[in-house]
Design a binder for these strands. Structure first.
Lengths: 190, 190
DNA sequence: TCTATAACAGACCGATCATTCTGAAATTCA
DNA sequence: TGAATTTCAGAATGATCGGTCTGTTATAGA
């Protein structure tokens, strides 16, 4: 009954994500978003309500990818150090982008749309909980020292994880990041 | 022989820094910079050449502060773990800002003025070298395990340091960051 | 094939961007 | 005190911003 759309919502979000990722919210101008996504202004407003809505939708999509990866690896049975090492190593590679869209959102809290900061925050909390669950099991399995401060270690791992993304921005190679991870895992194991 | 200026260059840079810090390069509009620094447009262009020049000058000033702090603590004799712990703890507190202007510059590589990224990178390399120097001495003093990978540990500490700034953005409390530091130091010591 | 519908491309809009310019004000040196 | 000089405040400037609107085009159902 009507002209069919020439875009697919997911593809548009992926392309918008890559632009926001590189350029930030203010830096990704509407003209560039229109050109890069192929979605014309009219449809962009109809579908997402505007630039802010597009950013939030792109961020949600990214966080979905990200949490999917963390959940997949950090719920493998049995929970423990293997999962933690696997997730740290996996997340460093295979991305065509630098850094992390979630972290960029956090660092741009005051320029990013209203709801974005909270969404990034919530994702971070779930990731921390996933780390903590694996650490608790690692403790029960005797993989880490008796009396370890599990909650402190959980935040430590997340801190390191986030730091690795900054290291990537600062030009650290995969080999260097690998050595960082090895150093931390060595300190963790009994 | 002429009307005296009503501003002091350093103060202007401090105020510009705080605005760029919070809002990023694109987000800090010239009108806001003029209002916040008290420096009028004419003088801003005469003194710094424009918005980009002001950003670079503010970043240089920030990196000067930052490196000054790192150098002061990480060159205390004798070099070793004490300095490392001291610098990690000191850098987390006492700032009225969130995050780190250097890290923000790295995450906004594609929107920030030409030379800014390189300046941030160079500062990071000096910091890493300072960590490495203290680790090498810690090894010689038997503070860390024989055969430790000093260069890997150095990058690990810098990674953690950067991660702590992101944790601050994500609302981590000083107590939580303290526990993260304690966990890492515990893993480091023999 | 014709009509209703929704997406299309791109022109248009006021607001605001970084930058430049203009003229008044304040100071110094003669 | 008066001329020279530099900063001051704020008014232009052209470009570009995010957002809106209009007329055209392509499809689906009748």
């Amino acid at each position: 009954m009507a002209r069919p759309r020439t875009y697919e919502r997911g593809e548009v979000l992926d392309k918008a994500m890559s632009l926001f990722w590189r350029l930030g919210y203010e830096g990704a101008h509407l003209a560039a978003l229109v050109e890069h996504t192929g979605l014309n202004r009219f449809s962009l407003y109809k579908e997402f309500g505007g630039k802010a809505g597009l950013y939030e939708a792109a961020l949600e999509r990214f966080l979905g990818y990200l949490l999917g990866q963390y959940r997949e690896i950090l719920t493998r049975q049995p929970l423990g150090l293997e999962n933690i090492e696997a997730v740290l190593r996996s997340l460093q590679y295979g991305s065509e982008y630098y850094g992390c869209f979630m972290i960029n959102t956090l660092t741009q809290r005051d320029t990013v749309p209203e709801g974005a900061y909270g969404k990034a925050l919530a994702a971070g909390e779930e990731i921390e909980a996933l780390y903590a669950g694996n650490l608790a099991n690692a403790l029960a399995r005797g993989q880490i020292a008796d009396g370890s401060n599990v909650s402190g270690l959980g935040k430590m791992l997340q801190t390191l994880d986030q730091g690795l993304h900054i290291q990537g921005l600062a030009g650290a190679t995969d080999a260097q990041k690998d050595r960082v991870i090895s150093a931390v895992m060595a300190g963790l194991r009994v």
